[in-house]
Design a protein around this nucleic acid. Structure first.
Lengths: 234, 234
DNA sequence: GATGATTTGTACGTATGTATA
DNA sequence: ATATACATACGTACAAATCAT
């Protein structure tokens, strides 16, 4: 039997809505109407409300009293602010990874990085996007700091709706892989400062390279690029 | 007319419960029973549930499906993890403050710091505790990064239930003031690296100096030190 | 600026899942 | 292990606030 990790309806609904937001199916600024959602999911408004509160807690939604809930919409200024903080958090992950990774984790990281190289050679952009997530997740875990891991992942997810793959992605992933290489090398050397610097550098390049999705209050009907392809190479 | 900033009952109840947790009236591990709270506040369980979800979103409470909600209780290990992240966030605040503070803010910071010196001379421990909060808040704001400000304040609040004023507080505040001085000097010099290092140093000293409140599943009846005096000098 | 439509906030009752005897 | 008790999760109904006209 399929035993779901999340058991309450609110949890499952939150998961669905979270994915929709992260993948751009629900766009920033878009309204999250309790009644409509209740109808769509075939439940009462109660679990919907719970889910919306949870989304708010992740930073993916914003609700004001008696005014409803909308998908979080941030301007250029705050977007830059968030990038700055995420850079620092990821840099700290890299630093701690350099200090604390076990030999086993180091080897796993090497293999992971090598796999990324293959994907670049094959020009498998989609595969590299998935690999990229794995790579960063490996560093979060490698920090051996559960709170840092959780916090960094949360900020990354919060940033997702506002980043998307740039056009010349094939070109970009080669750069990304090279930057990852600098981080990996520093970690394997146990050079914490260099690892942190390399990661900060990587992230700041990512910020410049990423296409910002302009804040939009338009309805979901708008299509634009295929939402399933929206992602970034960071 | 007293126009409250938060309007819904859930918001007000969250505020009350949040204060109780931060001030140690509700201890880590303690159960937050919906029915009892509903009776105490004279409302139905619905707004209570909303408030508990909001507390969970701040990280002050933890609820598991069908098992109820308790005040967040973290072990030594995770406490250290959170301290590490907070140190880095505050250091970033100091760094950005050194880069971005306006002349007006610099002057205000100087005055604030001078005020702290007076409090130390007078031996006003309680006053210094309040001053300390103001000092750190000033640096959060001085970073001119709204997301960083919000994030750092959130982590600090989350840490509050597990820190308390040490016995030799009078001795400690003198040290704290001196450490603040190093940060202020670096900021006024516009030396971002030095400001960040000084703040990181300050925070790591704070972590060592602070009395950890041992995780407790005991009921609230336990008194211990006066909850209203629980605070830390950081 | 007042009124009506719509949406959120709250109360209360029922069902379901967890823990204890 | 089964059953009982109890707290939470969900559904429904109503009240209150916002916005649109």
């Amino acid at each position: 039997m399929t035993k779901h990790p999340k058991r309450t309806q609110a949890d499952m609904i939150r998961e669905v809505l979270s994915d929709r937001i992260v993948h751009g199916i629900l766009r920033p600024g878009e309204a999250l109407d309790e009644t409509s959602l209740a109808a769509e999911f075939g439940v009462s408004r109660t679990p919907i409300r719970e889910a919306l509160r949870q989304l708010e807690s992740i930073g993916l939604a914003l609700s004001r009293p008696h005014r409803g809930t909308i998908v979080t919409n941030v301007g250029e200024r705050e977007l830059h602010d968030i990038f700055r903080v995420m850079g620092e958090l990821e840099a700290l992950c890299a630093r701690l990874s350099a200090e604390a990774m076990t030999p086993g984790e180091c080897e796993a990281l090497s293999h992971l990085h090598a796999h990324g190289a293959e994907l670049v050679l094959r020009g498998d952009v989609g595969g590299y996007l998935a690999h990229n997530e794995q790579f960063h997740d490996a560093l979060y875990a490698g920090s051996h700091n559960g709170f840092l891991e959780e916090t960094t992942r949360s900020v990354r997810r919060r940033l997702a709706p506002f980043r998307r793959m740039q056009f010349e992605a094939l070109h970009r992933i080669a750069h990304s892989q090279r930057e990852h290489g600098a981080v990996v090398a520093a970690i394997l050397d146990g050079d914490a400062d260099r690892a942190a610097r390399a990661m900060l550098e990587h992230l700041s390049i990512v910020e410049r390279a990423v296409d910002r999705i302009s804040p939009s209050h338009r309805a979901a009907g708008e299509d634009g690029a295929d939402p399933l392809l929206r992602a970034d190479v960071g």
